[in-house]
């Protein structure tokens, strides 16, 4: 039996379309796609290159050895330096020019203000009732249970 001309034409069109799909697919699929799973494996490396903003606590020990010692003797030892001082990667790279914040009492209260949502084990104060003044007048931030000595307090600007 003769194949109807319609079918012949349509077959040609189909072959052209499907063929161009596969050509496009082989050209447009990214090189590392599918190496690890249904994704571009190179994306892992790309995402890993993102720049750091937080240096990590261990970086500080090298240059701020004194504070580090004091810090880890006190009750704030579980804290991160950068929690209070803000992201420090730029400071670590260039300490002379990139300065960090010295947090004020609002930072202390952020963590210590009385709040019924906070767990009971955690030390909280009511700022209205607690002693007047900036917190660091009476607490060394790096070792909060200690009182700062007079000259130490004045030497910090």
């Amino acid at each position: 039996m003769k194949v109807p001309p319609q079918i012949v034409r349509l077959l040609i069109v189909t072959v052209v379309l499907v063929g161009s799909y596969f050509v496009a697919k082989s050209l447009l699929t990214p090189p590392t796609f599918g190496e690890l799973g249904w994704y571009r494996a190179a994306a892992l490396e790309e995402l890993a290159q993102h720049k750091l903003t937080y240096a990590g606590k261990q970086e500080c020990e090298v240059c701020h050895d004194d504070i580090w010692q004091m810090f880890h003797a006190g009750k704030h030892q579980t804290l991160s330096c950068e929690g209070c001082h803000g992201p420090a990667m730029r400071h670590v790279d260039d300490p002379e020019n990139e300065h960090l914040l010295k947090p004020g009492s609002d930072q202390c209260l952020r963590c210590h203000q009385q709040n019924p949502s906070r767990p009971d084990w955690y030390t909280q104060i009511d700022p209205e009732e607690h002693l007047e003044g900036e917190c660091i007048e009476c607490h060394i931030p790096h070792n909060p249970t200690e009182m700062p000595e007079e000259e130490e307090a004045s030497s910090e600007q």
């Binding site: 892992l44 993102h50 937080y54 990590g56 606590k57 704030h76 950068e82 929690g83």
Partner: peptide, 23 residues
């Protein structure tokens, strides 16, 4: 959240874990 992929691949903790004061 990427679990701070750029940090954990360098052996650092994710930023949120880094600054968490109470673990």
């Amino acid at each position: 959240c990427t679990l701070c992929y750029h940090r954990i691949t360098r052996g650092l903790k994710p930023a949120c874990v880094e600054v968490c004061p109470t673990q």
